[in-house]
Design a protein around this nucleic acid. Structure first.
Lengths: 261, 261
DNA sequence: ATAAACTGTTTATGATATATACAGAACTTG
DNA sequence: CAAGTTCTGTATATATCATAAACAGTTTAT
């Protein structure tokens, strides 16, 4: 019927959190001056989550930290889920050199993954928020843009590029989460080996038998499973190893495509 | 001081959930007969989580489904966290052919990743439970054993093998979670494109500019970002693509090692 | 000047996990 | 077989959470 309305960019139909992230929420025209701001709330929330974890982040915790009542926050942010989205968005604001770097694509991919991982390390709660959709907010899209830039000069179509972006960002996310889990366990006062299994190494060696676990048994006994040899082979090496395998795999794909021509 | 005690396998010192998973919890000798069992509780919890999601899984929901009071569950399981661990453990009970398969290592790795992903698909809540430590329960260790089996005949040391296991299982986890998120979004009645961004495609194209997002812009406009061409290039293809890249990367590592000799 | 829109607050609701105290049941030990 | 100990399932209670609804006061548009 009203085709004009239908075509009219329906920007307001975006989910509320995403609309806010693009600054599409309309400012109030009447009423008392606002004493708070969305920015203030999001920043406070991030501080709390950084220091005390996502589990400790409650609306009342944020409000009392700001010196307001819990419900006042809802005058700014429709729901806690929206707040989490805005927190993600805010910490995704990475600055990245705009000028073309002289590094080759392998190095660019390494850099991209490292940047992603650094977000997880600065904000350990980042990986605790589940992914509910493809990135749609300004800074998150910037991250995708940066990821795509690593493939700029490669002979790949758009779908191949997106597959690679998905692979790299997924790897970064996974690394970030595992590394965070380790740090959390260490900080929690548990002995540094609680997450790597070192603490339970002795118990495990009593429970794991060669008959039941033929392939695990020798690895466990050598100490490689519970990371017993600190310094010699750290978990960080595992991540670098995985990343290099992924990049090698991409390179091989490029070479095989070249041959076909 | 008492060296004997220190050496004494301290199996009871394992976290309660892990001790239970190994059957190390001591059965009561007196008192009324138990009307429930840990198994029953865990199974019921899994059914609920399968059908209604992890968010709907409360202790009272489980109890009422069993016809008991909420608090009765605590006579069997110390805490909800322990219950979650036991749920993970139970659905990790995969049967896998014990005889040596004739497939080559690439195919074995593909199979392993597929098995892992199938767990995430049968039990969508599986990926919602965060990883708090290296696998320590019987079935989860069995999964590690199976993963290691894919590297059995490869010329790699134990650390290299563990790095590969970490890479493959991490990839499987990530795929499983993303696929689940998609299905969840679809089942939630949202149009099938809500998570892939199709729904917001029009809005995005208004917001993303070439100046601000030089590398994303063309990909978005071509429709590759929001998966506009269904059937032509599905998300499943992305996952296969990534897996093949990882396997290629491993192969190249093997070849480079061989050359050095 | 008046009405509408908006503010921050108070109060209320319905979840949630789990601590505690109880009465009755069954096994262990005299 | 008797008594005490240990265990059962339950009822009650607490503390924490997100958020809905109603309210009185404030600013702006008309």
């Amino acid at each position: 019927m009203k085709d004009k309305e239908k075509r009219d960019y329906k920007l307001e139909d975006l989910p509320s959190g995403i609309a806010i992230s693009w600054g599409l929420d309309k400012q109030p025209q009447r009423g008392p001056k606002r004493e708070l701001s969305i920015n203030q709330i999001v920043e406070t929330a991030i501080e709390i989550a950084d220091q005390e974890g996502l589990a400790a982040l409650s609306m009342s915790r944020i409000a009392s930290s700001l010196g307001f009542t819990t419900m006042s926050l809802y005058r700014y942010i429709p729901s806690k889920d929206d707040l989490l989205l805005l927190m993600q968005e805010k910490v995704s604001d990475i600055d990245y050199p705009t000028e073309e770097s002289e590094a080759d694509w392998r190095e660019k991919m390494r850099q991209y993954v490292k940047i992603c991982i650094s977000v997880f390390q600065t904000h350990p709660w980042f990986g605790d928020i589940p992914i509910t959709s493809v990135p749609l907010t300004p800074n998150q899209l910037k991250m995708v843009d940066i990821a795509l830039r690593t493939t700029r000069n490669l002979p790949l179509n758009d779908y191949e590029k997106m597959s690679i972006v998905l692979l790299l960002s997924g790897y970064a996310r996974w690394c970030g989460i595992i590394m965070k889990d380790m740090n959390t366990a260490i900080q929690a006062g548990k002995s540094p080996g609680a997450i790597s299994g070192l603490d339970y190494s002795a118990a495990l060696k009593k429970l794991v038998t060669r008959e039941r676990y033929p392939d695990l048994y020798p690895v466990l006994m050598s100490g490689a499973y519970t990371e017993e040899n600190e310094g010699e082979n750290t978990l960080g090496d595992d991540f670098d190893f995985g990343l290099e395998r992924i990049i090698d795999g991409i390179e091989r794909y490029l070479l095989s495509k070249e041959k076909k021509r």
